[in-house]
Computed example of a mutant assay.
Amino acid sequence: MKEIDAKDWQIIRELQQDGRLTNQELAARVNLSPSPCLRRVRLLEEAGVITGYSANVDPRACGLSITAFILVALQRPERDAVENFEKSIQRIDEILDCYLLTGEADYMLRVVVADLEEYERFVRKRLHAIPGISSMKTSLVYGTVKSSRVFPHSHG
């Protein structure tokens, strides 16, 4: 794994804020000439620090007005049940994120759907179809206070 220095952190933060920067623009923002800047970006990509580039899209603007966080507990955290659950989750497009947790719940899912009727269909037909779930607790999002993909500045 590449050692991330302060200049790498500058590059990472700039790209997290705007992944469409040209190498020229990025180099100017981090006070490097274009060639060493590009070399650093390529090394960060090769080391798996930068894993890809994507657009941040407002789900509501795309007709996905319901965001839900679902805490899921499995009946038995045995290897087969865990593998089956995790493979099933990978195939469900409405689930954007799945986190493995400590504490009472085993997983937290972030789900987006168009409306409450679609959410009900999703739970009944997709989640309930996965064997081994003992409980699910849902919280619906009705507002976003902060949403960021930029890491804290204190790193580096």
Rank of each mutant, 00 (worst) to 15 (best):
M1P: 08
K2V: 13
E3R: 13
I4K: 03
A6K: 15
D8A: 05
D8S: 04
W9F: 05
Q10W: 05
I12M: 00
I12G: 00
R13C: 00
R13F: 01
L15R: 11
Q17N: 12
D18C: 06
D18V: 06
R20V: 09
L21M: 13
T22C: 05
Q24T: 08
A27E: 14
A28W: 07
R29C: 00
N31V: 05
P34S: 15
S35C: 01
S35L: 09
P36L: 06
P36R: 04
L38C: 07
R40V: 07
L43C: 04
L44Q: 14
L44K: 13
E45F: 01
A47F: 09
V49K: 07
I50P: 03
I50S: 04
T51I: 15
S54L: 10
A55W: 13
N56F: 10
D58N: 14
P59H: 02
R60Q: 04
R60H: 03
C62K: 11
C62W: 06
C62L: 12
S65K: 11
I66S: 01
I66P: 02
T67K: 11
A68H: 09
F69P: 00
L71D: 15
V72E: 10
Q75S: 14
R76M: 05
R79H: 08
A81R: 08
A81I: 04
F85H: 09
F85Q: 04
E86W: 04
Q90G: 07
Q90S: 10
I92E: 07
I92N: 05
I92F: 07
D93E: 12
D93W: 00
D93Y: 06
D97V: 12
D97R: 12
D97Q: 14
C98I: 01
Y99G: 01
L100T: 15
G103L: 08
A105P: 07
Y107Q: 13
M108A: 15
L109Y: 04
R110K: 13
V111G: 10
V111F: 10
V112C: 06
V113M: 04
A114K: 15
D115S: 11
L116Q: 11
R121I: 09
R121L: 08
V123T: 10
R124T: 14
K125V: 11
R126I: 03
R126Q: 14
A129H: 00
A129D: 01
I130Y: 09
P131L: 07
G132Q: 09
S134P: 03
M136G: 02
T138W: 12
L140M: 11
V141D: 07
Y142S: 05
Y142T: 10
G143L: 03
G143S: 13
T144D: 02
V145Q: 08
S148N: 03
P152C: 11
P152V: 06
H153D: 05
H153V: 06
S154I: 13
H155G: 02
H155K: 11
G156K: 11
G156L: 11
